[in-house]
Amino acid sequence: MARYTIQRLVYMVITLFIIATVTFFLMKLLPGSPLQNQEKLTPEQRAIILKEYGLDKPVPVQYVQYLGNLLKGDLGVSFQYDNRPVTELIGDRIGPSAQLGFQAIVLGTLVGLVLGILAAIRHNSWGDYTATVIAVIGISVPSFVLAGFLQYFIGVKLQWLPVAFWEGFKYTIMPTLALSVGVIANTARFMRTEMLEVLSSDYILTARAKGISNAGVIIKHAIRNSLIPVITILGPMAVNLMTGTLVIEKIFAVPGLGEQFVRSIELNDYPVIMGTTLFYSALLIFVIFIVDILYGIVDPRIRLAGGKK
């Protein structure tokens, strides 16, 4: 287990380093600079500003400086938001995004698991078909389309919930729903397949041959064993959620990180794009790392086999 953890950790660091490097050089290739909209500056003023941003030095020096700053947790300053540090901008915006993501993942996995389990237990019944169809639709309809329908029908037409903004729990319901549908669909589909496979395995027969009741077999043997592989989809799910927050926050005008990221793309605010990109990457890589470790802990086959080495 220790060896496994260290191996994962090394991969994580290498990947992060590569992402940081790629981001840096890509940004160097980009057209535009902090001065792009300020043609009236004199050459002297330009030089001063370039120096202030550290852009007067040769690229390799900038790269080393950039890496050094990264290690200190310094992501640079924004071109657009009054030279505020990127870390501060991220810190300001992370709250709503985190809340949204958390609500969506809790709601999504719970509903998804229940749907998947029920569909597997009632395999080939109407309930199973319905759950399967809902899952395919949930996977197919893009979250921004769904958000649009919710916003129009529930917000504009029925006026049950506020159309946009972020002023209390009521405001979080629609974005959470829009975001969680994909999670529900993915979890339900995956859980159903896993559960069906487990239910047809020999040890379920052994358990039934012991005289354990059907409910007991499902709860003690089937669900537990199907849940373990479900952990693996948490990683891809985190990626989906992140993608989702970019558009959902924009649609519902949620003052979150995603909304800021989309805006900085529109404004060519490179330090913010770069910083947020790195932040997202680090977050996702960390989630995947945690998922790997969690999987090792939950599955005795990995936990104990790894431990002996």
Binding site: D202, Y203, L205, T206, A209, G211, K220, H221, P300, R301
Partner: peptide, 30 residues
């Protein structure tokens, strides 16, 4: 009756035990 009066053992011991439950628990369950 199952497991109490009539019991059964299956063909493949590699797959007929629950991989995530200790042996002790699996026996005690019965």
């Amino acid at each position: 009756i199952r497991g109490a009066k009539i019991s059964m053992i299956f063909q493949d011991p590699m797959t007929s035990l629950n991989p995530t439950m200790t042996i002790g628990k699996q026996i005690m369950e019965a």
